[in-house]
Measured scan of single mutants.
Amino acid sequence: TRVETATETAWISLVTALHLVLGLSAVLGLLLLRWQFPAHYRRLRHALW
């Protein structure tokens, strides 16, 4: 049971790290898009909202 718990903890930390990385890359990508294509971003936002 001790090994299982350790594996579970490792998986949880791995998944958390993955989610953090994905979230950060998504935010960075959005910022980059907004910085590179302001007109396109505004049009996209206008279409979405």
Rank of each mutant, 00 (worst) to 15 (best):
R42L: 12
W49T: 07
L22M: 10
A39C: 06
L28Y: 06
G29I: 11
V21S: 13
V3P: 01
V3L: 10
H19G: 03
L20R: 02
V15P: 04
V21P: 01
E8C: 04
Y41L: 10
L24W: 08
Y41T: 11
A10W: 07
T9K: 12
A10R: 10
L33D: 04
V27R: 02
L28F: 08
V15S: 02
L44W: 08
A26T: 13
V21T: 12
V21Q: 04
L24Y: 05
H40A: 12
L22N: 01
H40Y: 08
R45F: 05
H40D: 02
L30A: 13
R34I: 07
T1Q: 13
W11C: 07
T7W: 14
L44I: 14
R34A: 06
R34C: 08
R34Y: 08
A39F: 10
V21H: 00
V21F: 13
W35G: 15
E4F: 12
W49R: 00
H19S: 02
S13R: 07
Y41Q: 01
V27I: 14
G29N: 01
F37N: 09
L24T: 05
R43P: 05
W11F: 11
V3R: 01
T5N: 00
A17P: 03
A10Y: 05
L30M: 11
A17H: 01
E4Q: 11
G29C: 13
W11K: 05
L30P: 04
A39S: 13
R45D: 02
A10E: 14
S25D: 08
L22K: 04
R2V: 11
R45I: 05
R2M: 15
T16G: 07
A47W: 09
I12W: 04
L22W: 06
P38V: 09
L31T: 14
P38A: 15
G23F: 14
G23W: 05
T1R: 10
S13N: 07
V3F: 07
T16Q: 00
L32G: 01
L44P: 05
W35K: 15
T5Q: 00
L31H: 04
A26R: 04
L31W: 12
Y41K: 03
A10V: 10
T7V: 13
Q36Y: 15
G23N: 06
W35C: 12
S13Q: 09
L44Y: 08
R34F: 01
A10T: 11
S13I: 13
R2W: 12
A26F: 14
V21I: 12
L14M: 10
E8V: 02
T9P: 14
R2C: 10
L44M: 09
Q36K: 12
F37W: 07
G29W: 07
S25A: 13
V15G: 02
W11D: 03
A47K: 14
I12G: 02
L31M: 10
L30D: 02
R34S: 08
L33K: 01
A26S: 11
T9R: 12
A39P: 06
L24N: 00
V27P: 02
